[in-house]
């Protein structure tokens, strides 16, 4: 058969596409359960860490048990939108999901607040793709721990209720240090936290 003929070329491409399409599908299909399990384990691990839950082990089952045993996953419907959030059955702490665009890509995470929404108890990240060693340091405990006990200044303008970085009052109770060399990530994080806090509080209290 003439290898340069259109019929041969079409046949060849079709055969190759079918073969590799099948191969990728098989690899994908055989890892679907694992991917799902990994995703669920990661989510449960972050929830357990952010609520400081006691977990008996480091397996996916241990994290699932800890979360389902101690945390309620709830949803508020407000202005036609749904806001999922988490509630610790033991002490009523509230976990809210935040999401926004960082320096490179989306940043998602969970912030735990006291029942009166006045104090940040903890913060952890579900996903981020910031620069390793710089923006990605938002995941380090040295940074996330600095949020523990932070007071939210609800009287301040919505974008300054939490301050990450410089402020006229360096000792303000609603301020944490930014990450050196990751100014853009710090600003993006401050913006998304303030925005999602504002929306959640209004939804939670049913305000207009």
């Amino acid at each position: 058969m003439n290898k340069q003929s259109p019929a041969y070329i079409i046949f060849f491409i079709l055969a190759l596409s079918t073969f590799f399409g099948l191969a990728i599908s098989i690899v994908n299909y055989s890892t679907v359960d694992l991917l799902k399990k990994n995703e669920e384990m990661h989510r449960n691990r972050v929830i357990a860490q952010v609520f400081s839950l006691s977990v008996s082990g480091t397996s996916a089952d241990a994290y699932r048990e800890a979360v389902t045993g101690q945390i309620d996953e709830l949803t508020i419907t407000w202005n036609g939108r749904q806001f999922p959030y988490l509630k610790n059955r033991e002490n009523d702490d509230t976990g809210i999901f935040f999401r926004g665009t960082g320096f490179w890509d989306a940043i998602t995470g969970i912030m735990v607040l006291s029942p009166d929404l006045q104090t940040i108890k903890n913060i952890k990240f579900l996903d981020q793709k910031e620069t390793p060693g710089l923006g990605a340091r938002i995941e380090e405990e040295a940074f996330t721990d600095s949020f523990m006990g932070l007071q939210i200044d609800w009287q301040n303008q919505p974008d300054k209720r939490i301050i990450i970085g410089p402020s006229p009052d360096p000792n303000a109770v609603n301020r944490v240090d930014a990450i050196t060399g990751a100014t853009q990530t710090s600003i993006a994080l401050m913006d998304m936290l303030n925005r999602d806090l504002d929306i959640f509080r209004r939804a939670y209290k049913g305000e207009e």
């Binding site: 990728i24 690899v27 994908n28 890892t31 694992l34 991917l35 990994n38 995703e39 990661h42």
Partner: peptide, 8 residues
């Protein structure tokens, strides 16, 4: 796909 499954 394999890296994502083996080491997320």
């Amino acid at each position: 796909i394999v890296i994502k499954a083996v080491s997320p």
